[in-house]
């Protein structure tokens, strides 16, 4: 069981959370100018990295709020969590002394 830290509620069991997929996948600002290829990239394609992954989680059986997390997809270890709208932590902040 993963222990996930909700930035609003603190540490809770994994079973209280829902996964929301890759974070920071911004919808194109001017949809009329976007090609089919660019739509496909936004709607379907994902980085799916082996290693650090910025992703969205929802504390669905708790405060029901969305937040972002950086997690290692090999060890499954959460490196950090941050609120929606907060600046993305840099690699140095993630991997630096904890």
């Amino acid at each position: 069981m993963l222990i996930i830290e909700c930035p609003y509620c603190g540490q809770r069991d994994e079973s209280e959370f829902s996964y929301g997929g890759e974070a920071h996948n911004a919808r194109p600002l001017e949809p009329d100018t976007v090609t089919d290829q660019q739509w496909a990239d936004y709607v379907f394609c994902r980085a799916n990295p082996k290693g650090l992954h910025r992703e969205m989680w929802n504390h669905s059986a708790g405060c029901r709020r969305w937040f972002n997390a950086v997690r290692d997809t090999v060890t499954y270890k959460f490196k950090c969590v941050y609120k929606i709208g907060d600046p993305q932590p840099s690699l140095e902040q993630i991997e630096g002394p904890q």
């Binding site: 069981m1 993963l2 994994e14 829902s18 992954h53 090999v74 060890t75």
Partner: peptide, 13 residues
């Protein structure tokens, strides 16, 4: 398991 993972193991839930 709902989350992305390459670890060849899943969760207890």
């Amino acid at each position: 398991d709902s989350y992305n993972g390459y670890g060849q193991r899943g969760s207890f839930t």
